[in-house]
């Protein structure tokens, strides 16, 4: 029998540079993407909800809220794109939580790979998830009669912005995923977090008819800001103002939750 274990003495690695870190991150992103392919039902989880809302609000409430379906879709669809990305960005918390509780992280940590690599991999794979979810939503919306009123570049910019928003928002999920012990508890909490955020915005209805205290929040809420920007980029209208608001929110979320997430990550893994 050939000796397998010792036929080549292992080289001793003592430090891991940034190039290696990135390679490890990419290898783990490949794993994340494989998982999306193997487990499409996990995608369905986050894609289905916005699509159900799309059908429900467009066909049932569309006429009442927006006068007609045709005039309601331009308001609804960009908002739902934000919702989709936000819900998809919650999955990373679930996935990291599962990896930690199942012991997959222990295997990674017992190997000579960079500490942040699993996080980088998870977040990179997340970008692919956002793109898939958003594409599905926009295709269904187009079938229902939604029309992009701008050009190719603004639409791509809009998709990019939504993905960037997801990338910032996912640190909330990473943070919670590292704090909370069981994946089951995670799911409920993340649902509870993302629903009020989407309904407390102008995704479904204009803030004009809301009570003043709610309107005050809805007008400045992150989902409203990003949704308004996407409306401008997808169907036309002002972009600069809401874009500024979006960036402010994204920076704010990142400044607060990225350090929290990193601290919880390091703590959970020490």
């Amino acid at each position: 029998m050939t000796t397998i274990a010792l036929d080549a003495p292992p080289e001793v690695t003592r430090h891991i540079g940034p190039a290696r870190t990135m390679r490890h991150g990419l290898a783990l992103a490949w794993r994340g993407i494989l998982k999306i392919r193997k487990n499409p039902e996990q995608l369905a989880d986050v894609t289905l909800m916005p699509i159900i809302f799309l059908l429900l609000f467009a066909y049932v409430f569309g006429g009442a809220i927006g006068g007609s379906i045709e005039s309601y879709l331009p308001q609804l669809v960009p908002g739902l794109a934000v919702m989709t990305v936000m819900m998809a960005s919650m999955t990373v918390g679930m996935n990291l939580n599962t990896d930690v509780s199942k012991g997959v992280f222990d295997r990674f940590r017992s190997m000579p790979i960079a500490r942040p690599a699993p996080l980088i991999g998870a977040v990179l794979a997340d970008l692919v998830r956002y793109l898939i979810c958003m594409t599905i939503l926009l295709v269904v919306a187009t079938i229902m009669g939604f029309r992009f009123g701008t050009g190719f570049v603004p639409v791509v910019a809009g998709v990019g912005l939504a993905m960037l928003f997801g990338l910032c928002f996912c640190w909330v999920a990473v943070w919670l995923g590292m704090l909370i012990r069981s994946p089951g508890a995670m799911q409920g909490l993340l649902g509870m977090l993302s629903l009020p955020l989407t309904f407390g915005s102008n995704v479904f209805a204009s803030s004009d008819t809301m009570p003043s205290w709610l309107k005050a929040w809805v007008d400045i809420s992150p989902v409203t800001q990003v949704a308004d920007t996407l409306r401008g980029l997808f169907v036309g209208g002002p972009v600069a103002g809401p874009l500024l608001g979006s960036f402010a929110w994204m920076a704010g979320i990142l400044v607060v939750f990225f350090p929290l997430a990193m601290r919880a990550y390091r703590k959970r893994l020490s």
Binding site: L34, K35, K38, N39, K102, G103, V104, D106, R107
Partner: peptide, 12 residues
């Protein structure tokens, strides 16, 4: 390291 709990990715 082979842990007490199988530490491989079950989906893959």
């Amino acid at each position: 390291l082979t842990g007490q709990y199988a530490s491989v990715d079950e989906d893959l």
